[in-house]
Design a binder for these strands. Structure first.
Lengths: 195, 195, 195, 195
DNA sequence: TAGTAACCGAGACGGTACGTCTCGTCTTTAC
DNA sequence: GTAAAGACGAGACGTACCGTCTCGGTTACTA
């Protein structure tokens, strides 16, 4: 049986160098053209050191992406009292991220990756998307408590009703992600959710 | 300038063999492990014959998938008069397809592929998803004319409101695609669309 | 049983175009890089037209070479009475041909080819080298009759004694083919052959 | 700039396997039909391992051939005192090698190869033929010192006078390499070289 | 003069091998 | 004693040609 590496001995310097190189390369040449060899070379690290700690290229890049956002103190939960405005802001913030040319290729690559890598999917949904979805749900809950939403609405479904159309457009490229689109979606969804 | 191959001389026998082999292999070993070499070998065909007519593995597999559905006479547009029931039927038919173990891996693979292949994305949306989305839109239009939906609703957005949550769940694996889920989504969406 | 092509119907225009193209290509890119496809394309000819009339690339190129020399009325047999001078002239004429930059690569290619193509070897020795070797032998015979050479010398061996060292140098690149070299070889050989 | 491979890390086991396989294949199917793919497969080696260390098929086969003869302690310089007999022995030993059915096809292939590969030509002449030519020259030098040869004869030319006719016959297939032929050539050459 | 046999240009076909690339593992060197 | 450096076995990539096999379309003999 193969022994797992001793995590206490892990070189923090190498870890950082690998994540930084992964990110640099992914933005420079695109996810598809990044290779583990290239990451190792740029990080000044043996390939084995990558294979020892990550199971796949996707996992390295994903970790690199997470590390990028890890400074964020989490989404400032917007609660201006105006539910409509708050939701529109959340949606717009979401697709500002999705179409940011610095991130879009990698977001797409990660979404491609999770189609045949369920473990990565869980991680991505939990740790990258999670904060967004959770704070949206929180906002809806506070509205529900305030009697602005029907009391029997399943909030997890409500969140999907908001983000589903956005991701649908973005993943299938069936249309542009404009401000008006956010307005339209939010307006319709609120009609669905109100008491 | 490179000359395109003379399509009139194309061997139908080889075309069929290639598509069949592609499909067999994709279901047998999964899209990611299928190679053009293997498709050619199994089809009893030179690799060049594949490269002559398709630009990528994704294109071959996609064509194979299309050919599979090509016998379908198109969706029987369901119009029982009961809008609610019709939409639930459409949604359930959709995820019956999505979770069919014979097709799911390949659907996922195609969705992964289109993230870095825009041409394929257009094709997929147009030719595989298109019929479904169009007939859904047609059904909504007939309901709108009958005064069951608000007259100012943008039907393309309405369609996304229906399918978005479904694809969101399926692509991000955030929850199961159950019958109840379809009911919930349709109920909410109809509340949004009613006059 | 496969029928041989009907030589009477052969297209002279195609034959010429093929030989010309073969020669052009061989001097342009070198024998090794010439392909039958390229010859056919440049000649504006179907590949089958080449395969119908020649068994191999070597055969085409050889024919092209022969056609080039076919205008030559044959070697003017040098018989000035001065055997020494005549032989030196023959040797020098030989390596003028061998090192002519227009022909050397193809001569070398043909010599390479005959190492695994005995039929071509016979043709080459008979039709390209033959005239030279025969006229040299003739010159030696006349000298032998005149008593300048030992009467028991086998003239075929004598010819090889003259040309062998030259080809040895040329084929194995063991040294330069200079005028002095011809002088030295002829002088030594004549010492061997004199009565 | 591409870095050359680190020769100190080279796998001796792979090197041997490649050379052995090359030799086996060349004798089994003939040089022309040997491919690098086949050598790699038979050696249980990745193709890259061949491409890393050799520039061409010819180079591999040549190395394989050299390795074969590498146990030889070099030609036992024959110096029986009888120059005539010694030279005849050398010539006969030479064409015993040339016409040995195990080696002839490969010798021919190598001679073909060097026609368009000057680097290989140098290697072949230096390392395969070299020992033979040098020991022949040594034998002639000792004879010259003993006054059996004219003191002004250029011994390199003398060596070519001996081997040139032999290679001429062999390469151009203009006649058989018999014992009598060796006798005749040696006799004539000695007449040329004697004081 | 109609029919027909053959060559012709063109080029698709099943194949083989090329030389390059990347993978994930194994081995050696140096700190 | 750990990791960098990097050679290794494996095998897919896309390309180039191979030699064979239709295709229609001209010729040029035969009935």
């Amino acid at each position: 049986m193969t022994k797992p590496p001793d995590v206490t001995r892990r070189s923090e310097r190498s870890r950082r160098a690998i994540l930084d190189s992964a990110l640099d390369l992914v933005t420079a040449v695109g996810y598809g053209k990044v290779t583990i060899e290239a990451i190792a070379a740029r990080a000044g690290v043996g390939k084995q050191t990558i294979y020892r700690w990550w199971p796949s290229k996707g996992a390295v890049v994903f970790d690199a992406f997470l590390a990028l956002n890890e400074g964020d103190t989490g989404l400032a939960l917007p609660d201006s009292g105006d539910l409509d405005a708050d939701l529109r802001a959340l949606l717009k913030a979401t697709f500002d991220d999705l179409v940011d040319p610095r991130f879009e290729p990698t977001y797409r690559a990660l979404h491609a990756e999770i189609q045949h890598n369920a473990a990565l999917a869980t991680d991505l949904v939990e740790r990258l998307l999670g904060p967004l979805l959770r704070s949206t749900e929180d906002r809806l809950r506070s509205a529900q408590r305030a009697g602005q939403l029907a009391p029997d609405v399943d909030l997890r479904v409500a969140v999907e009703l908001l983000y589903g159309p956005v991701f649908h457009r973005w993943l299938l490229r069936t249309g542009p992600l404009t401000s008006e689109y956010a307005d339209t979606v939010v307006a319709l969804v609120l009609r669905a959710l109100r008491p």
